[in-house]
Design a protein around this nucleic acid. Structure first.
Length: 568
RNA sequence: UGGGCGAUCGUCUAAUGGUAGGACAGUGCCCUUUGGAGGCACUUGUCUAGGUUCGAAUCCUAGUCGCCCAGCCA
């Protein structure tokens, strides 16, 4: 791959409601002369996926666009689920996508301040310690249609609340025995406002604060204030948090602190893709895939290993736009942007995945020569290379048919085709093995057609890739397909499970591939277009003695379409 | 049956009272030393019913449909 090609013209920057809103806030000087401040707030409880890429592009991209700043903030308020491994992977993924943060923050940095604010709310009679069990609290919460009822502990004195909360912090009570709740309104039609829990007791060591704390703030009590502390002007999050906005504002207003504003947008959904962290974790833990970076996973680490590029991901995120509509993007859209990027930048090479031997009978025995081949026809600056040619070569099994179907342009008995950048050949006869399978095809070549054109102007219908048998190198090729057979993986039959929709053929390992020798020196992660086949990249499993390629995506295949139509 | 949010080509997204446009997908043609890429063309859409207006995707009224919320998860 070369980096000399300029990035594609800015992706469709669809004008979004977020852009309009920020522009308006800037125009009215809602935040004075301050620049836009955003944040990307992942919880370090799993690996980032393509859905997060959209959020990252929004949080960082919009701030960039308006000359603002973006913090990376880990929302690490639940030590039971969070790990340093996830923190590390998230930082790596954000950088890989092409973004860098103004400040690296952690919600846990604010535990002290949050605690002080909790004391303030208690003193103002706006928070209380509740001794109800989780089950009892659920009963008191009411339902979607019925109001909740007050806890018997709701009217404790400020002194008692202060005493109890201080002792909660001191570790005097066991997990689950008490919580601190905001005193708002048990009859609110918005369940989030029915005296939400602010703190729970959790005698669990935190990956950053160790055992300094045994009470931990809930998301709602931590997020808005964290935004406020960082002077976040635009706190973008997904739609399911819209119901939490009144609470987000309530804490900020009661505390009288910097008025960060929450704005919700639609989550990314993709056909044939599962973007639930919980489910992805399950696939990893149950061994349904080979880890978080399995190239079939929608995680950024999986996608990266698969060979996708940050440029393509960013172009995709720009093109899909942002709205408040629940929708599902066709996977083809993502694939389109990836092909578009790789087509312009990936070096070409010839590789035969399922080899069929061709013997050129009138080519001198023992002779070899080198033909000059463009590294990337889309990019003359990528230069050329010399590829060895000889009497015995491999072509793709699919490229020969003893009995050609209609519209089949490739090699068949008596038919002349071009070997890319080499010669015209004509199939003369077939040799079969004991089972009747075609073992080799014998051809004749036209020495005058060297380079791929005949001086008499003769045309051929087809151009095929090939690899000289004597010079070929081997490789393992991993062919990936969709992880799910259903466009909507979570659509399952009664009593069924997402696992029922897993595609049993999502990974095919091809071991007998024959590659042109130049590929022998390819580096880990290097990307290629195997001409007429697809885009591939070198997998990290590659060793000095074993080459492994991942197929990122196949090339579009209009012959497959014709064939399918004829068969249907 | 509480509250919140939403509804424009098959999919995603523009149009902010003034010609419903783009991208992906699809179809056809042209071009091609990748049946790739590229070029051209075509098809398909404002949830419904009323209303306001010279004019409505946009405003009003009433429906319909979809998504989210009853964790001491985020």
């Amino acid at each position: 791959m070369t980096d000399s090609i300029p990035e594609s013209p800015a992706a469709n920057t669809t004008s979004t409601f977020l852009r309009d809103l920020i522009a308006e806030d800037l125009r009215t000087k809602k935040y004075g002369e301050a620049v836009i401040q955003t944040r990307f707030p992942p919880e370090p409880n799993g690996y980032l996926h393509i859905g997060h890429a959209k959020a990252i592009c929004i949080d960082f991209g919009l701030a960039d666009e308006f000359g603002g700043k973006t913090n990376l903030r880990f929302d690490d308020t639940n030590p039971a689920k969070e790990e340093q491994e996830y923190v590390d992977s998230i930082m790596k993924d954000v950088r890989w996508l092409g973004f860098d943060w103004e400040r690296l923050c952690y919600a846990s940095d604010y535990f002290g301040q949050l605690y002080e604010w909790a004391l303030q709310l208690i003193r103002e009679g706006k928070a209380y310690v509740d001794d109800l069990s989780a089950d009892q609290m659920r009963e008191h919460r009411g339902t979607l249609t019925e109001p909740g009822t007050d806890s018997p502990f709701r009217n404790r004195t400020v002194e008692e609340n202060l005493d109890l909360f201080t002792r909660m912090k001191a570790g005097e009570f066991p997990d689950g025995s008490r919580v601190l709740r905001a005193r708002i309104d048990m009859a609110s039609p918005n369940i989030n406002m029915r005296d939400p829990v602010m703190y729970r007791i959790l005698h669990t060591a935190h990956q950053r604060t160790g055992d300094a704390w045994c009470i931990y703030p809930m998301y709602d009590y931590a997020h808005g204030q964290s935004d406020s502390i960082e002077q976040v002007t635009h706190s973008m999050c997904t739609l399911e948090f819209a119901d939490h906005q009144p609470l987000y504002r309530w804490y900020i207003e009661q505390l009288g602190i910097f008025p960060s504003q929450q704005i919700e947008f639609d989550r990314l959904n993709l056909t044939y893709t599962m973007l639930s962290k919980r489910k992805l974790l399950q696939f990893v833990q149950e061994g349904r895939v080979n880890g978080w970076d399995d190239p079939r996973m929608p995680t950024l680490s999986g996608i990266r290993r698969r060979g996708f590029t940050p440029e393509a991901l960013r172009a995709f995120c720009g093109a899909i736009g942002v709205s408040r509509t629940n929708g599902t993007i066709d996977l083809e859209m993502l694939e389109h942007f990836q092909r578009d990027d790789l087509n312009r930048r990936a070096a070409r090479a010839m590789a035969v995945l399922r080899p069929l031997k061709v013997v050129i009978d009138n080519y001198p025995q023992g002779q070899e020569e080198f033909v000059e081949v463009a590294n990337n026809p889309e990019d003359p600056a990528a230069g050329t290379r010399q590829v060895p040619f000889s009497r015995e070569i491999y072509i793709e099994q699919d490229d020969f048919r003893e009995v050609p179907p209609p519209k089949y342009y490739r090699l068949s008995p008596g038919k002349e085709v071009r070997l890319r950048n080499a010669y015209f050949i004509t199939a003369q006869s077939v040799v079969k093995d004991a089972e009747g399978n075609i073992a080799e095809v014998h051809c004749t070549y036209d020495p005058a057609s060297r380079g791929g054109n005949s001086p008499d102007g003769r045309k051929v219908k087809s151009t095929m890739h090939w690899v000289s048998a004597a010079h070929a190198i081997g490789a393992e090729i991993r062919i990936y397909d969709k992880l799910f057979t259903n466009a909507f993986p979570s659509e399952v039959e009664e009593g069924g499970d997402v696992l029922d929709n897993l595609n049993p053929n999502s990974l095919e390992i091809v071991t007998g591939a024959k590659l042109e020798p130049s590929l022998g020196s390819a580096a880990h992660g290097e990307r290629f277009q195997f001409e007429r086949v697809g885009y591939f990249c070198v997998d990290p499993d590659t060793t000095p003695t074993k080459l492994v390629f991942n197929r990122t995506l196949p090339l579009k295949d209009s012959w497959a379409k014709i064939e399918k139509k004829a068969g249907a």
